[in-house]
Nucleic acid binder design. Structure first.
Lengths: 183, 183
DNA sequence: ACACTTCTATAAGCATGTGATGTAAAACGG
DNA sequence: CCGTTTTACATCACATGCTTATAGAAGTGT
């Protein structure tokens, strides 16, 4: 409420100021990582398994943006901890379907609750108006984070990537196949 | 707990839905990590050095939420890469003042620009209304992420107007002294 | 002078990621 | 049907970035 943003059509987010906030956000996020001993990737993977059901390793790797060996190892760790397990696919014996276990589901649920509580706490200090703004912002984030956003060349050339060089999204496509392709 | 039903007929943030968005945000963030080879902590530390000037190692450790040895090592890496350097403090020869170098400053500036550009790109797909909402949200974040600067033990009693009772800051206080871990 | 504290460094270990390779199963081509 | 290629996963060697435990040097108090 302190800052009444100018009306529609006008002024904008000041990128520099925004970047500052972004830094602080990152610092904040780094802190609330894994209250329960799961890495970000591990947690995210578990969530995915919980929501979308069994998945093959390479798909998980793509979804989480890590390499296939990385995902293999992550799954091994999850399996070791009893949160997921491998199940062979009878129709194609190369693939491994990874499933979340009951323990995993429980952990996910617990985490989710804890996080919701925490958020609720934080939101207690926030006015209704601000809350509305947050809801809107989250919607935007959903939009931006949801679809992988078609890469550069597929269509309109007007899309200039400023930081083209080594895209931050460079990791964006770690390419699941390390050895076989590039080279 | 924290049955935060926002009172006066305001728009409500549904914690569960919010948590979902939060997950997606995390996934997004993990991807845009370090386009230029810096870890989150390294980047954050550099920013701090850039903004606040020379700092002693233990202060940096507290500020970044890592242990003192961790910070010592991080500084060694930054030094190795020419982004920061140690400078002895003549008045107290135990301490080491860490300073950012010109190269470090340059990198920070570059990163900041790149990030601003990227943000600008993203914001291109956002309506003015949504932008306003984002600005408001960022303000909230600043408020929430900014002050909690006074963790537990340091100094003045009665200082804790922070989230004393219910420690949502769960992992939040690694504390510079190693011995105090939960576990 | 001596014990105590403070600040940094070093050592050893763990978790998590990468790239290069190995290997079995499936898909293709003749 | 057999050989080659592709696909899907695993394994190995290594790098990073943390952690705890501990050492050691420099201030402080008595």
């Amino acid at each position: 409420m302190t800052e009444r943003t100018p009306g529609p059509g006008g002024a904008d987010v000041d990128p520099l100021r925004t970047v500052g906030s972004f830094d602080r956000l990152l610092r904040l996020l780094r802190r609330l990582t894994t209250p329960d001993g799961l890495s970000l990737t591990a947690a995210s993977t578990l969530y995915l398994l919980d929501e979308a059901g069994a998945q093959r390793i390479s798909d998980l790797a793509v979804a989480e943006g890590v390499t296939q060996p990385g995902m293999t190892q992550l799954i091994s760790r999850l399996e070791r901890d009893g949160l997921a397990h491998r199940r062979g696919d009878p129709t194609d014996r190369r693939v491994v379907a990874v499933e979340i276990t009951d323990a995993g589901r429980e952990l996910v649920a617990h985490r989710r609750r804890a996080r919701a509580d925490r958020l609720a706490d934080l939101l207690a200090d926030v006015t209704a108006e601000e809350r509305a703004a947050i809801v809107t912002t989250l919607g935007v984030l959903d939009r931006l984070a949801g679809p992988p956003r078609a890469p550069v060349d597929s269509g309109s050339p007007g899309n200039h990537h400023t930081s083209a060089g080594h895209g931050p999204t460079a990791g964006g496509n770690p390419s699941v196949t390390p050895g076989s392709g590039t080279r």
